[in-house]
Each structure stands twice: as C-alpha cells, then as structure tokens.
Amino acid sequence: MTELDVETLRRCRRGNPAALGMLYDCYRRPVYYLARRMVGEMEAEDVCQETFIAVFRSVAKFEGKSKLSTWVLAIATRVCLMHLRKRRRLNTAAEPTDAAEAEPMTLLSPSHELLNKEFLKRLADAMDRLPENQRMVVSLRSFEEMSYEEIARAMNCRLEQVRATLFRARCRLLKFLEGH
C-alpha cells in the first residue's frame, strides 16, 4: 500500500481539497475492500464514506506514531464494527461464533493451490462465511503491511488474540475450501 508524503499530509491537515483527494484515492481501495468483506456490498459504500469523513476530520490529530495506512484502516475497522453492532441490534439472527473449538486441520490438495479465478471466488465465499472477528483479522492481514500488533491496535484486542483468531480463520477457510 502506498503512503502519502509528508507535504501532502501537511496540506491535508490544512484542508487542501487536492491533498484530501489524494488521501482518498490512496486508501479508498483497502477501505472499500475491508468494508465489503465485513458489512457486504450494500453497506460498503456507507462505511467507506463514514470512514473518510472521520479520517478527514481527525487527520490534523494524526501524530505519525503509526503508518498512515494503519491509522486509516484502524478507523475503517471501528466504523465496520459499529455497523455490525447496529445490524446485530436490528437482526436477531445469530452470527457464527468464534468459539475456540479445536478445528481439525484440513490441507489443500495440490490442485487447489493455483490462485486461479475459481479458487479466489471460492475463497471469497469462504471468507464471507467466517465469524466477524475472523473475517476482520483475515481482511486486515490481507494488507501486507498490517502486523499482528497493528491489527491488535486496530481491533482493540491483545496480540495473542490476533494470532489465535487468524490461525482459526485460516483453518476454517481451508475446511470450507476443501469441503466445497
């Protein structure tokens, strides 16, 4: 993921529309992807907008302690979680839980290991069937720069939880892919 340069960031803080546009273009794709994975296509655009409104409003407070991309994705994570909470309040249907069940380890047969369109489609379907927190961790981890620590900070949880959740998510994805 590309990062904005210091000068553009400075202009963003001063509300320069061109710089804000660059920030938006730079991070729209990952934010949209995360939103679509987490809340689905219908609400993804809303999450995207809410995220950027929050980002633009607080960009002046960004202290540079983390990468800008991590900071933006942390805001997007919070907006996604807020949407999911709202949806849970409206919808009583139970979300698949992330119980610490011992997933039997499933391995991909060599034929699956090609990253072809079919595989990606099935992986996307499998990801949609994951519990929220597993989906969130896998989605955030898809952005190569997000370390466990950064994911933990974005999701407001412990680093060990990220490690375990990501592992469980991968096991479950493998199970879905093999069982397809």
Partner: peptide, 18 residues
C-alpha cells in the same frame, strides 16, 4: 503451503479495484 495459498489468495482479493 496450505496457509500460504489462503494468505496469497486473500492478498489477491484485497487488490480488487473498488
């Protein structure tokens, strides 16, 4: 290898244009 395939697939999905 299995974990790698899943991870690479997820990374590829994340590249989809919005």
């Amino acid at each position: 290898r299995s974990f790698e395939a899943v991870q690479r697939g997820a990374e590829q999905l994340a590249q989809e244009p919005a």
